[in-house]
Design a protein around this nucleic acid. Sequence first.
DNA 1: CGAATTCATACTTGCGCAGTAGGATTTTTC
DNA 2: GAAAAATCCTACTGCGCAAGTATGAATTCG
Lengths: 177, 177
Amino acid sequence: MNLSKRGEYALRALIDIGIASELGRPRLQVSELAAKEKLPVKFLEQILTQLKAAGYVKSKRGKFGGYSLAKRMDRIRFGPVIRLIDGPLAPIPCVSQTSYVRCTCPDEVHCGLRMLMLDVRNAIAKILDRYTLAEIVEITLRKLRRDKVTPLFLQPSKPLVSILPSQLTGRVMASRN
Amino acid sequence: MNLSKRGEYALRALIDIGIASELGRPRLQVSELAAKEKLPVKFLEQILTQLKAAGYVKSKRGKFGGYSLAKRMDRIRFGPVIRLIDGPLAPIPCVSQTSYVRCTCPDEVHCGLRMLMLDVRNAIAKILDRYTLAEIVEITLRKLRRDKVTPLFLQPSKPLVSILPSQLTGRVMASRN
DNA sequence: CGAATTCATACTTGCGCAGTAGGATTTTTC
DNA sequence: GAAAAATCCTACTGCGCAAGTATGAATTCG
């Protein structure tokens, strides 16, 4: 019942970009993302490329480039992202809705295991296919504000140049007081 | 979000033994089990050994040997079996109840991914830790009877000697008429 | 131009899944 | 007691895939 590292990192990246975006910083660099979550940069790079190819993020190259969301956050659901990267949500192929494969058992209709696993797959899908990135981002932000925590994006290790930090500190201060 | 073949076969075996047991045939041989579900015999053998070591089944050696359940069916829950064979139910270690491992993210409490995955893990556990073998067997039998299907255990490919078949056919006929 | 970034592709490394293989041990039947 | 039929035990194998590394090309900005 595992989510791969690849899948995990993909979701983390999306959530982070979403939060940053909500805080007025719509674009993040791979190196920032990697630093925040302590992930291998090059690996993350690959994953973001994949997310880009699937239309979840868009990128800007060159200096001050980075990744931003390519869709509205309320249109990004976690199920499809995980399916993209890890394959079906279903524990066994014969209960997958999106990529069903018949199993070896002689009578699928009366298969107890299948019933059970169908239940599991539906429970998983009910969560992952219903939650949107917007909801998770919102909940996370609410929690952060409630506990008066400054999101890490707003504390760059190397102080950022340009107007970005000041934009953000305004927001951060607001949530602090 | 995968159940391994090993895990799948283990559950199939338990369910099959449970059904057979309920139908008055408390012991099944590995070769029978394997034939019914079309599984590799030697692989299944290993798995049953593991189930035995964990106290789910007991075995009888030699001619007319085989495996039977070592616990009451209403005491066998699927969650623990899967954990035994496949490890934690949780999609990521930092939401596992039975074998928690801290993740690399800087702030677990405010981690959106973690919230989401905790939800998923709870949904999975709610099903797998609540259902018992007894329930699945019962439901399966009810379905089989409703559709007037004879379980495969009762149609041995090589006709069985001794008293076993007649015991069973009695039951089968009863369910047929 | 030069620095900083993403993009593309290839490669590596290790591990775990899904079995196979072969024989030892136990039980039953003849 | 021997043969047959089952489980038990242990080792091994293949190989695919996850999780990265590595290298360099293309793009963008100052």
